[in-house]
Amino acid sequence: MSPRRSVADALGTRATILDRCVGLASTEGLEGLTIGRLATELGMSKSGVLGHFGSKEALQLAVLDRAGQVFRAEVWERALPELPGMPRLRALCDASISYLERGVFPGGCFFTAAAHEFDGRKGAVRDAVRARFDAWRGRLRKETQRAVDAGDLPGDTDPDQVVFELLGMLMALNHALQLHRDDRAPARARRAVATRLGLAGF
């Protein structure tokens, strides 16, 4: 086997492990990812699984990265073609609601679940979860500020307050879908976002 083929096979195996881990972690938490369980489910040895990551923490960080790639494709990249400001802010909210409504991750919002699991801890995994949220908040804030600058939101609008409220609505939607199985929640979330942003027919 050529070295190039060996690298390709290793990358393919790593991707398979990560995709399985993302599904498990979204419902059972990052701490629920055990090397032994993964080895059994994937038909691999423990050393074979561990060899791709080196440690459980490294595995958890890699899973966060993979989940981030999925979120970026499902939310950010769907909104990116829209014009900056209100059109993109609206698209980001719509894509976020759709992401939760369609159950992209079986356990709902991957990062909301990870935040609940790690927000009271210290360490690299908590820092990585916070960094994801900081980046998401930063994108929402940038588009909110652009909407203010363009006159689509009142000039005295506090972008940080808008982002706080939008994130609260999305977390409430996640809660309603996951805990209560409320299929009316996405429509409520869309109405709430439209009211906050002063939009009609959202």
Score class of each variant (00 low, 15 high):
residue 56 K to E: 12
residue 77 E to C: 04
residue 136 W to A: 00
residue 152 D to W: 02
residue 52 H to E: 11
residue 88 R to D: 04
residue 156 D to W: 13
residue 177 L to G: 01
residue 190 R to A: 14
residue 128 A to Y: 00
residue 147 A to D: 15
residue 170 L to P: 04
residue 64 L to Y: 05
residue 89 L to C: 13
residue 139 R to T: 14
residue 140 L to M: 12
residue 127 D to E: 15
residue 34 T to W: 06
residue 153 L to P: 05
residue 112 T to S: 13
residue 66 R to Y: 01
residue 30 L to Q: 02
residue 80 L to T: 08
residue 168 G to P: 13
residue 78 R to F: 01
residue 8 A to H: 14
residue 61 L to Y: 03
residue 116 H to A: 07
residue 158 D to W: 13
residue 33 L to T: 03
residue 122 K to I: 06
residue 22 V to Q: 00
residue 46 K to A: 09
residue 83 L to H: 10
residue 140 L to F: 15
residue 68 G to I: 07
residue 71 F to G: 00
residue 78 R to C: 05
residue 188 R to A: 09
residue 89 L to I: 11
residue 118 F to V: 00
residue 34 T to D: 04
residue 89 L to N: 07
residue 181 R to Y: 11
residue 102 R to Q: 12
residue 151 G to E: 14
residue 84 P to M: 02
residue 66 R to K: 10
residue 100 L to T: 08
residue 186 P to H: 11
residue 45 S to G: 15
residue 186 P to R: 12
residue 52 H to Q: 09
residue 137 R to S: 03
residue 144 T to M: 04
residue 63 V to G: 04
residue 135 A to P: 01
residue 96 S to I: 01
residue 181 R to Q: 13
residue 23 G to K: 07
residue 134 D to E: 13
residue 32 G to I: 06
residue 69 Q to Y: 02
residue 140 L to V: 00
residue 193 V to G: 00
residue 11 L to S: 08
residue 30 L to G: 13
residue 54 G to W: 08
residue 63 V to L: 06
residue 71 F to E: 03
residue 141 R to H: 09
residue 163 V to G: 08
residue 61 L to T: 06
residue 90 R to H: 09
residue 50 L to M: 14
residue 135 A to M: 04
residue 120 G to P: 03
residue 100 L to S: 13
residue 110 F to N: 02
residue 104 V to F: 07
residue 104 V to G: 09
residue 97 I to A: 10
residue 155 G to E: 14
residue 56 K to S: 12
residue 34 T to N: 01
residue 86 M to V: 05
residue 92 L to N: 10
residue 199 L to F: 11
residue 17 I to K: 00
residue 171 M to F: 15
residue 184 R to Y: 12
residue 95 A to T: 08
residue 23 G to A: 14
residue 139 R to D: 10
residue 111 F to E: 02
residue 54 G to L: 07
residue 37 R to V: 03
residue 138 G to Y: 11
residue 147 A to W: 10
residue 31 E to S: 05
residue 54 G to N: 03
residue 187 A to L: 06
residue 112 T to R: 09
residue 16 T to D: 04
residue 188 R to I: 10
residue 11 L to Q: 12
residue 55 S to G: 06
residue 189 A to N: 04
residue 202 F to H: 06
residue 173 L to N: 11
residue 91 A to C: 11
residue 69 Q to S: 05
residue 1 M to S: 14
residue 58 A to G: 04
residue 82 E to T: 01
residue 118 F to W: 15
residue 192 A to F: 07
residue 76 W to V: 05
residue 165 E to L: 15
residue 109 C to Q: 05
residue 142 K to F: 06
residue 175 H to M: 08
residue 99 Y to F: 15
residue 76 W to M: 03
residue 40 T to F: 07
residue 202 F to R: 08
residue 91 A to V: 12
residue 10 A to Q: 12
residue 60 Q to M: 15
residue 44 M to D: 03
residue 171 M to T: 08
